[in-house]
Design a protein around this nucleic acid. Structure first.
Lengths: 342, 342
DNA sequence: ATGAAAGCGCTAACAC
DNA sequence: GTGTTAGCGCTTTCAT
C-alpha cells in the first residue's frame, strides 16, 4: 500500500505543469541551456523562485554521477592548524558551489580505513586528507585510487604515494628552528615526535638532525621521543625532563606536544627559558600571551587548505590524472618569542 | 593481451548477475531482510565483499528520501568551543552511520541565509545550528521549518524560535562570574558583548546585570561594549581601557574578546590582575598557561555537541514528534585562575 | 524465498 | 525551441 502524500512534492514535474511546459524544457531552462529561449528561461526561473523550487540533489547526482561534494579527512578538528585549514578549504569549496563533508580519524588508523571505505561509493567527488599519526600501511589509500577518486594530501602526507601533496617546508624550517636553539646556547636538544610513520614527521625530524649535524652536534637517539601514544607521551616527556644529562632545549613537532611540555615544566618547576628552551610547531593564536610567550614554527594553515582544495578541484574538473607530480610547498615562519631566548 | 577498458559499473545488477539472483533478492539480502534465506544472505554478502560492492548512496537516498547526512552550521571552526562541539557531534553521527556536512557562516547572516536555502532541498535529514552574531530576522529559519527539516540549536540559539535548544546555564554562570569579580574588588566591570541580537548573548548579559544588581551596583550602559563588528571592536575595547573613570574588571562573553583584551593590556602596559581583572567565556586549552593564567567560564562544548546531535537524531527517527519544548541546559564551570585574583 | 516491475526526480539524447 | 523518453541504481510492493 502506497503511503498517502500529505502534500505534493515540489519537483520538476509540478513546476513544468504549473508552467504548461515539458519537464525537459524546464530542466534545460533551469540549467541555462542555450537551446531555450530567453523568455522561457525567465518564466521558468520566476516560477521556480516563486514556488521556492530546489533541484533534488540525489536525483541530479544519480543522473550526472557527480556529487558536488568533497570530503575532508583529518586527525582532529580541535587543533588550530586543522581548523584554519578547514577555513581555507571551505572558502574554495563555497566559491565552487561544493559541499564539504568532514571526517575525523582521531589519529586512529582504523578509523581512517573505515572512512576511506565509506568514501569509495561515489558519495564525494574528491578527498582532501591529512594522515593519522598511526598510518603505516596504505592499502586503504590504494583502494581509493583504484576507484579513481581524486585525492590530495595536505600537511600529513605519504611521500611514496603518488598524489598531489600540499606541504610546508618542514625540513628547512626545522633546521632553522634547531639552529635557533643552538645559537641560543642549547646543546642537549630533544625532539618530540608525533609518530615515526608519517612523512611529515620524518621531514621535520630530518631537519632537526640536519640542524645538529651542521653544527657538529652528535645525534642522541635517546633525545628523540616518540609521542604517538597520547596516554604514555606525557610520562615520556616527564622522564626526559628529569634525566641525568640535562636537556636544555625542546623542539616539538606539533602544538600539542609544546603545550604539554609547558604544562610539565610548570608542574616540575622547570623554568622556561632559563632551564629549558622551547620551540614548537604551532598555530596557537595565544602563543604570544603564554608565560613565557612561545617561539613557534607557524604554518600557513589557511593557505595550505586553500591550495589543497584548489588542486583537488582542478583534478575533479579535468578528470585527467596529470597532477601526480604536483607538489606544493608553502613556507612556514619561525616566530621567535620568549621561550627560546633569555 | 590487455583488454579494452570497458567501464563496467559495479552496481546491484552486476552483483545479481554474478550470483544468478534477481536484483530484488540481492537488495533485500544486503539489507538483511527476513524474507531472504540465511544461505542466500551469506552468498550475497560474501560476493559483495569479494567485489567490494558499495551501495550507491544517491540511488538509495533518492528512493528512500533519506540522506543519512546532517549539516552543522556554525559561525567559526577556528574556535575551541565549536571545534570541541564538532567532536561531540561527529561522535554521535559516526555511531549512527551518518555523514556530517559542515558550513561556516563567519558570523555573517547573509551566509547563514544562503546556507539555509541550500539545505532546503533534502540534502540533509537534519540540521544543527549555532547562529551568527548578526542574526536578527529568522525568516530563513522559518523556511527550514516549513520544509519540515529537523533543526536543533546549540549555544547560539534563537529563544523565541520553537525548536529544541542545547545551551549552557549562561544566566547563572554569568551572575557567578560577575560576583566573582565583585568579590575580588572590582567596581567598574565592563561587559564585552559579541552581539545584542542573539539570545545567548542576552542571557549572558542579563546574568552580568543581575550580578551587579544583587550587589547594588548601578548598571552603566557605557560599560557594555558591543563587539559585533570585528573591525571596530579592538578600538572600542582600547578606548574602554583608557576611559577616565577607570575600568577595573572585564567580563568577556566569548573567548576571542578575552584574548583581545589580553593583547590590548600588553600593548598598553595595563597589568592583569593588578590594574584590571578579567574573566572570559573560553574553552582555550592553554588558559592555565597564559600570562597571567586566565579565569574562564568553561562550557561543556563536547557534551553540548553530543547532546545536540542526540536530540536531532531523535527528531529524525521519530519524524514529526514534539520536541519543541525540549530545552537542554548543561552547566558550565567557572575556573578561577590568575587573571581575576591578586 | 525469490522475482518482476514500478518508480524516486532528474538529465540528456533524440525527435519533432 | 520544445517535447518525449530512456535510463542513473536502488527499494519495495506485489506476484509467484
Amino acid at each position: 500500500m502506497q503511503a498517502l502524500k500529505t502534500h505534493i512534492t515540489l519537483n520538476i514535474k509540478t513546476l513544468a505543469n504549473e508552467l504548461g511546459l515539458s519537464i525537459g524544457t524546464v530542466s534545460k531552462a533551469l540549467r541555462n541551456s542555450h537551446e531555450i529561449s530567453e523568455g522561457t528561461k525567465k518564466r521558468v526561473l520566476a516560477k521556480a523562485r516563486e514556488l521556492n523550487y530546489q533541484v533534488n540533489p540525489f536525483a541530479s547526482s544519480l543522473r550526472k554521477q557527480k556529487s558536488k561534494t568533497i570530503a575532508v579527512v583529518i586527525p582532529e578538528v580541535a587543533n588550530n592548524f586543522f581548523a584554519l585549514a578547514i577555513n581555507g578549504i571551505e572558502d574554495v569549496a563555497l566559491a565552487k558551489g561544493y559541499h564539504v563533508l568532514i571526517y575525523l580519524t582521531h589519529e586512529d588508523v582504523k578509523k581512517e580505513i573505515t572512512i576511506s571505505q565509506l568514501l569509495q561509493n561515489g558519495r564525494v567527488d574528491g578527498i582532501l586528507m591529512s594522515l593519522s599519526a598511526q598510518t603505516k600501511s596504505k592499502s586503504h589509500l590504494v583502494a581509493l585510487r583504484e576507484k579513481e577518486i581524486p585525492l590530495v594530501f595536505f600537511d600529513r602526507v605519504a611521500d611514496e604515494f603518488d598524489v598531489p601533496k600540499i606541504i610546508t617546508d618542514d625540513f628547512d624550517i626545522s633546521i632553522k628552528a634547531t639552529e635557533h636553539l643552538l645559537k641560543n646556547g642549547c646543546r642537549q636538544i630533544a625532539y618530540l615526535s608525533i609518530s615515526n610513520n608519517i612523512s611529515i614527521e620524518n621531514r621535520r625530524r630530518s631537519g632537526y638532525e640536519e640542524g645538529l649535524r651542521r653544527n657538529n652536534i652528535d645525534i642522541d637517539e635517546t633525545l628523540i621521543i616518540n609521542c604517538e601514544d597520547e596516554a604514555t607521551s606525557r610520562e615520556k616527556i616527564k622522564q626526559l625532563l628529569h634525566r641525568e644529562k640535562k636537556v636544555d632545549g625542546v623542539f616539538a613537532s606539533v602544538e600539542k606536544l609544546a603545550v604539554m611540555t609547558y604544562e610539565l615544566c610548570r608542574e616540575n618547576n622547570i623554568r622556561i627559558p632559563t632551564d629549558l628552551k622551547i620551540v614548537g610547531f604551532s598555530n596557537l593564536y595565544t602563543a604570544a600571551l603564554l608565560n613565557p610567550s612561545l617561539t613557534t614554527v607557524t604554518q600557513p594553515a589557511f593557505e595550505m587548505g586553500k591550495q589543497a582544495a584548489t588542486v583537488l578541484f582542478k583534478m575533479i574538473e579535468k578528470r585527467g590524472h596529470h597532477f601526480l607530480q604536483e607538489n606544493t610547498v608553502i613556507p612556514s615562519k619561525l616566530i621567535i618569542r620568549g621561550s627560546s631566548i633569555e
